[in-house]
Amino acid sequence: MSDDVVVVVDYGAGNTRSVCAALGHLGRSSVVSAEPSLIAEAPHVILPGVGSARSAMIHLEETGAAEALRERYAAERPLLGICLGMQLALQASEEDGGVKGLGLLEGLVVRLDAPRVPRLGWALVEPWGDAYYFAHSFVAESPDTVATSEGLCAAVARGSFLGVQFHPEKSDRAGLEFLASCLSRD
């Protein structure tokens, strides 16, 4: 496999097709995999995000992907989490009656307290200044929050992990630019 292939982590749910398509538009090839050695070593790994927290964590633990993600984080290799993939990096989630996360970052995922849930649509992210597409019913509360949207956590970062609540792969040109900037990190 060539050196610049982006690994999109497979956890049995999640629409990986859109993430791979967006990477393709940036001229990057990708592979969908739960193979621990690939996840630990690839130059860029994306933990995508649709589905339920419990089934995602069970799948990640069973395949060895969870341990590989922890190793990767400890080795300070770049890791991007999207939506559920960002939430899974925290300590625990209230979803599905309570689920333990990967615990890479501090913080918890709680049921969204908003006028309408799910929170669906485009919203500005501060301080970044662009609008991105959100679709979520749970939200992170984390000291590692680095960007917000309408007062809610929109992004967390610590060490080599960057996680976003929005879907860059569904956020038109702003989303592609965001992905391109993530892939330029080493």
Binding site: R17, S18, A21, H25, S171, G175
Partner: peptide, 11 residues
């Protein structure tokens, strides 16, 4: 649906 998903970057 597959073809649309491959070109579209909006939901």
């Amino acid at each position: 649906v597959e073809r649309v998903a491959d070109v579209l970057e909006i939901p």
